[in-house]
Design a protein around this nucleic acid. Structure first.
Lengths: 210, 210
DNA sequence: CATAACAGCGTACACGTGTACGCTTAAATT
DNA sequence: AATTTAAGCGTACACGTGTACGCTGTTATG
């Protein structure tokens, strides 16, 4: 089993995936893509599509996985930058905004399918975001010595804010406006961090005096 | 001009709008609705649709307006409740959650079209949400004596959190889980309020010593 | 070397779509 | 009372869709 065959198959599979990603845009959602269009873009006969995916849905779930992977790579990248010193919040937001600029369509996919019509898609996206949230929660718990529940609420809020900002950023072309949005987002995250810290501290004090 | 005719026209116009709203659900987005389906549900021949809307898009924008109206009614209701006393944050979140429970599909429409494929739809939704944000901004500025820019950042963050929570709530059936989500959202809003207040105060102090 | 497996193609079909066109019928206008 | 306006209907058309089916040529297996 040299794998020449399997190798070819994997290659055209990627062609299908890339064809779908290429067709995604601000004006084109995944659900508006047809099997025939994707196949054509991939240089395939419509019926050959089935040799790789039984459904457009199956392709869609694959794309969501792909997007999740991109998200996790992003996190790793942010951690590396943070390790080299600098404001955690600032670096995180900046890194996230870079993602939106370079991979807007992948992020759009996540945003759209999160509130889409397929329960399976929604679940898949939510799973990716939850992973994101949990990682942040862990970090906050260790770095800021927060209670577990406070850390979770904090992390959840921060992720909501960042994704919301990402959503806004997608509709902004002007670079300066984008930076303004980033600055605003940073400020919002600081508010949350401040509030969480204070609530956490207050609780510790009341424990101490009990 | 007694208006018997105009009255009839308005009536079937509403039938079309209601037909569309009725067909919206977790599994069915507006963009997946066909002109023929809507016409059928409204008890009309497909071609008669054009007597009222030139396009499905035009109907869609009407629905977004309708949703915006619902949102503004919600705000008025919340203000009335707040005037009778009680925690502002708690009442706001509770009122918002009631909207999601009773008008889930209208809220879904807003959420989906905010990241949808039509620029006109996105703009319309963003306009409604901005109105929402500005109202809150005004309130915060007056009630908490915040700086204008801090108030805006605060309001924007709060709206993002509340809409995010609404989005999450749509996928939760269990009542207890929903209440837990509401509780968590309230806590998040408190974090933000705390943080904003502290930042605002600190700035005032530095001004005083200048 | 014979044979089985299988990626990819082309044809074909039934179905749902938007919408152009002309007609009917009842209200509004003159 | 005569005429115009316009909501609603039915027919008809071209088009894009998913996918069943059988075929071909190449690779893998025995």
């Amino acid at each position: 089993m040299s794998g020449v065959r399997a190798q070819q198959k994997e290659k055209t599979r990627r062609q299908i995936i890339n064809a779908a990603l290429k067709q995604l845009s601000a004006e084109r959602s995944f659900s508006s893509l047809s099997l025939r269009e994707v196949a054509k873009e991939a240089g395939l006969a419509p019926t050959s599509f089935y040799r790789h995916f039984s459904d457009m849905d199956e392709l869609g779930l694959t794309l969501v996985d792909e997007a999740g992977l991109t998200l996790r790579q992003l996190m790793r990248q942010a951690r590396q930058r943070i390790a080299k010193g600098g404001s955690v919040i600032q670096i995180s937001v900046q890194t996230f905004m870079e993602l939106i600029e370079s991979n807007g369509n992948i992020f759009r996919l996540l945003l759209r399918e999160r509130s889409g019509t397929s329960a399976a898609f929604r679940a898949a996206v939510i799973r990716e975001i939850r992973y994101f949230t949990m990682e942040l929660c862990d970090y906050l718990q260790k770095a800021n010595h927060l209670d577990a529940d406070v850390a979770y609420i904090h992390a959840h809020a921060a992720v909501t804010i960042v994704f919301g900002a990402g959503s806004d950023a997608l509709d902004i072309d002007d670079k300066e406006e984008r930076e303004q949005l980033a600055e605003q987002t940073i400020q919002q995250l600081r508010f949350i961090a401040r509030g969480a810290l204070e609530f956490s501290d207050r609780r510790k004090v009341s424990k101490k005096f009990r």
